[in-house]
Design a protein around this nucleic acid. Sequence first.
DNA 1: CGATTGACTCGTACAGTGTACTATGAGACA
DNA 2: TGTCTCATAGTACACTGTACGAGTCAATCG
Lengths: 204, 204
Amino acid sequence: MSDAEPALSRERIIAAAVALLDAHGASGLTMRKLADHLGCGVMSLYWHVKRKEAVLDLALDAVLAFNQPSETADWRADIIHLLQDWRRAMLRHPWSAALLPRQVLGANTLARLEALSHALSRGGVAPADLNAAIWSLWNYVMGATLTFASFNLSAADRVAAQQRLEDLSGHHPTITQSRLLLDDDWDGVFAKGLGFLLDGLARR
Amino acid sequence: MSDAEPALSRERIIAAAVALLDAHGASGLTMRKLADHLGCGVMSLYWHVKRKEAVLDLALDAVLAFNQPSETADWRADIIHLLQDWRRAMLRHPWSAALLPRQVLGANTLARLEALSHALSRGGVAPADLNAAIWSLWNYVMGATLTFASFNLSAADRVAAQQRLEDLSGHHPTITQSRLLLDDDWDGVFAKGLGFLLDGLARR
DNA sequence: CGATTGACTCGTACAGTGTACTATGAGACA
DNA sequence: TGTCTCATAGTACACTGTACGAGTCAATCG
């Protein structure tokens, strides 16, 4: 515990929080552990941050740091790139999906929304459809991320889940047959579904 | 506290849990409060239920009780009906969105997935696209539900959010102009986005 | 009949949580 | 030197999930 620690700050706190979340998941973040990690007293944190929830909010937005990508002539490819990047940023920190239910519109989230909106406009989506298009894509990305974070089981777990599904009476013939839970090509499924959605959008 | 209480049971426990969750939200459910509500000791609950997480899992699936709807000639309308019902079931219990991150495939969820899968097959979605189609629609519904549950602010909050957005530098001209956060027609947006997705699916 | 077993109920206790309150020191300026 | 503000903390409190073990009561068995 060298006293050469740099001064406590909001930034240092959320950086430590992200590290702890990455290492031990959402349930592993404790104000006490956070303080230990920073070599400070627990209550010192509360000078920089109102309550624990604020730490989580800030950590989520921090993870979504955003570099404005350059626009290309292909608006559709731009959108796909944008959303893939969004998804990847969250999957790099799987706890972020669990934090989605809290309503956060941090600076980074807003920047991403703005870029998305801009790309859609360039793509010729009618102004009357714009908000619905933004929310649809947002919903899709968030849902896909959430699903992946929840269902990305180990191979063994996956087989067990499919088995349970088959046992649960033979009442689910279609999804049993399509091996819905054994399919682990999440990236492919994400891209394909995004394609469906963009196809539908492009028809307007 | 009449001792004519019906015997404790898993069913009674989760019914009480749903009632408490409806009344006080996810953070309002405590094993102690649950026991008080049922007129029993706290530890009695643990005979019927392994741990608190199990209560939440069971409550989530309970809320998704599913009545197989009759099929019509219009598969697209069937799917829309299916997904609207799914969404409505969850919105009736807003805490359910916050529980989504836990991976639950209860009987009711599976029944709904099966019905969805069946309707898509009837609609002529190619078998190779089937899983992607199911997950896409699932992702969309979950994302939309999550978004609504998180963002359905009061009118005052909504104005404040939009204001904050405008203040946050003028760096977000497009979404400021489209009044993304002031638009509160969530049902309409949901239906429209679902339309986009189904349009895209139908093209295959 | 008493003894035994099993299903079920629950009081106590413990380690851990977020955070309110309060006290303390460090520099800056008078 | 004395204040004043910023910043750091220790202590304390109410509350959480749940392990442990002791209790109750009905059914079963010898």
